[in-house]
Design a protein around this nucleic acid. Structure first.
Lengths: 200, 200
DNA sequence: CATTCATATGACGATCAATTCATGTTTGAC
DNA sequence: GTCAAACATGAATTGATCGTCATATGAATG
């Protein structure tokens, strides 16, 4: 499940580069829409408009493609989030804008969300790394905010995972299953919970 | 993926009942250990010690078994949690004991946890129902606590999903990936977050 | 324009899992 | 103890995907 074969060499021409991208992009669309396990390699190559054998010029296996997609999505999401948080002036505002950006991202890319979650059952290591990376970033941000006195002292590691968990399930609930509820109706209560908790 | 075929009739003899259970239990063990997609029906029947054809006397397909496992796990988990919460005397205590019981359950049954999560990619409807059911219960509990003045007023639906999300990812992080950290080191900070939030 | 490397193809063989079914065994009601 | 219904079996069929390979085309170089 986590076995790594020798990676395929990078394409050496523009044409190769383009073809590789076509395959990756078709894989993202097909897997995002129908799921990893039911998508066959020939589904992907058909969607990409290339021959079946072409796939194996650039990738070892379907798992290999998924790994690359997860990494790519991680980068995209990170970029999207850091853009949203950039101009906030304290931690709670960052939580608000980060959560909003996350659910927006999910609404805009439901398939991509599913790809990451399903990667757990294909290559646990890559899924884990995805979350570990986000957690590490989150944790640092919380520690900085703590230093600055923007938030109470607390266990930043546990907090990071708890807050990520909130975002993940709210993303599922309000980003995929229900895209009708206005985001403000979700963000408001969620940020209130993050900021002040439930106690009177 | 969500297609439902005519359900198989219940066994009519003790022997039948026993065989059906053997298959379900073997399926739970195998799928929990190795994952749904890589487990074949013959893996399951071999582990159960029955012939391959026997499987089809009781189940339509592997998906059919998974549905039943998810329902069963939902009942088990609900039972485990309500037992843990029963004697708590306010909402925050219930959050504490519920979270502890949940992560304990995950540590004790990592495979079961994976079964529920993977069901999302096999039969989305059953996975969704699982969460919807828990959310409905959670929401009611929060509304009652609100009535009693045990917690501040707030959007119980959003809160329920946010808190479930926290539990799910903390369960992943501290129930599956890291089972060495003492639970109190996790529960404490998490309940502090739930109770008072991060603001100073 | 000749040569060479990179890229592209899709038919084909190997593999594997799902499901059926003809046949045999067990159970329990009478 | 008989008998019909329920249950059990695993070999055989079916269907689908993977991954390879012989062959062909494209592009760049001198």
């Amino acid at each position: 499940m986590t076995a790594r074969a020798a990676a395929k060499p990078q394409p050496k021409t523009d044409r190769g580069e383009r073809t590789r991208r076509k395959i990756l992009s078709a894989a993202s669309a097909e897997i995002g829409r129908r799921g990893f396990s039911v998508t066959s390699i020939s589904d992907i190559t058909a969607a990409a408009g290339v021959g079946q054998g072409t796939f194996y010029i650039y990738f070892e296996s379907k798992e290999d493609v998924l790994r690359e997609l997860v990494l790519q999505l991680g980068r995209d999401l990170r970029h999207h989030l850091s853009g949203a948080i950039a101009r906030t002036k304290n931690r709670l505002e960052a939580e608000r804008e980060g959560l909003r950006a996350f659910i927006e991202f999910v609404r805009g890319n439901p398939g991509l969300y599913r790809i990451i979650e399903e990667s757990q059952f294909v290559d646990d290591a890559i899924y884990r790394r995805h979350y570990m990376d986000f957690a590490a970033t989150y944790r640092s941000a919380l520690e900085v905010a703590e230093q600055r006195g923007e938030i109470r002292k607390g266990n930043a590691e546990v907090r990071a995972w708890a807050l990520m968990g909130m975002a993940v399930l709210l993303g599922q609930r309000y980003g995929i299953w229900d895209v009708a509820t206005p985001l403000d109706d979700v963000i408001g209560p969620a940020v209130d919970l993050i900021g002040r908790g439930i106690q009177p």
